[in-house]
């Protein structure tokens, strides 16, 4: 048995306290919003007087929540399309950047990642002005294009990371065995970087789903997006359905995360 000194104990307490505080700040709001979503009351009040599924029933009612449903499908569609297009572009970009060791490649890398540090609000405004100057009317496709710029770097970054971890010897071995570049890509590179691509797509999808700044500028009444809709409801009616939406989103993210972990975990185990 090792004797703990005074500094060991204070360290333990300090770290424990910080960790507890962190968990409280991260999990607390989530717990409160979920608890509130099960309320019977008319208002967003915590703690709820009694528990029921009333607001979830309301939320899933096709007539009374039609606007929310449209916004939700818009958000999912935009996130899906932006992620799909972003995946193709980012993987190609990462492949090119990883192959070249010249300084120009580092410059390109920084360029591709720059949307991550760009203030998204300014980008939203800039995109709106740019598209109106070009004479392009707001539409879902425009939203997809707008989101694409903001979320593609997530996929680019994780793909590039898994490419740099790829042993170049594997591709040389493949070459010496008579395989073409395309064959090597299909059977060696792609399977080994797939977990990285999947992780990036997950991050990209989530970040598109709850993107406010770009949607704020590029969406219209016709192309309402879920986060914007929620904000609108919050401002006007303090509708408890907002809490129910939050509950559904949290649950969906949780499920998606478990699926992702299962998939990439599996691929990780397969690729050693």
């Amino acid at each position: 048995m090792q004797r703990s000194t005074f500094s060991d104990i204070t360290y333990k307490w300090a770290v424990g306290l910080l960790a507890g505080l962190g968990i409280l700040i991260l999990v607390g709001p989530v717990a409160i919003v979920i608890a509130t979503s099960f309320t019977t009351s008319q208002t967003l009040r915590f703690p709820p007087p009694e528990l029921s599924l009333r607001w979830y029933r309301e939320l899933f009612d096709p007539v009374r929540s039609a606007q929310i449903h449209i916004a939700a499908w818009n958000s999912v569609w935009v996130a899906f399309c932006a992620t799909a297009v972003g995946m193709v572009l980012s993987v190609l970009a990462a492949l090119a950047v990883a192959r070249v060791s010249r300084p120009s490649a580092r410059l390109l890398e920084a360029g591709f990642l720059s949307p991550l540090v760009l203030p998204t609000l300014s980008y939203g405004l800039a995109a709106l002005m740019f598209f109106s100057v070009m004479g392009i009317r707001p539409s879902l496709n425009l939203l997809i294009a707008g989101h694409l710029v903001v979320i593609a770097p997530f996929i680019f970054r994780t793909t590039l990371a898994s490419l740099t971890q790829l042993d170049p010897g594997l591709l040389e071995a493949s070459q010496s065995l008579g395989a073409s570049r395309l064959y090597a890509f299909r059977r060696i590179t792609l399977p080994l970087i797939a977990p990285g691509i999947a992780a990036g797509c997950f991050l990209a999808f989530i970040s598109s789903m709850d993107n406010v700044p770009v949607s704020l500028f590029l969406s219209t009444a016709r192309t309402g997006m879920l986060p914007i809709r929620m904000w609108g409801m919050m401002e006007s009616t303090l509708d408890v359905r907002i809490a129910a939406i939050a509950g559904v989103l949290i649950l969906a993210t949780l499920v998606l995360m478990l699926v992702m972990d299962r998939l990439t975990g599996l691929t990780k185990r397969m690729s050693g």
């Binding site: 042993d167 010897g169 040389e172 071995a173 493949s174 059977r187 060696i188 080994l192 691929t267």
Partner: peptide
């Protein structure tokens, strides 16, 4: 080139 190579770290395909 029809050359067989045994690499130093073997470079076996891990997956």
């Amino acid at each position: 080139r029809e050359i067989g190579i045994v690499f130093q770290n073997y470079a076996l395909f891990p997956h």
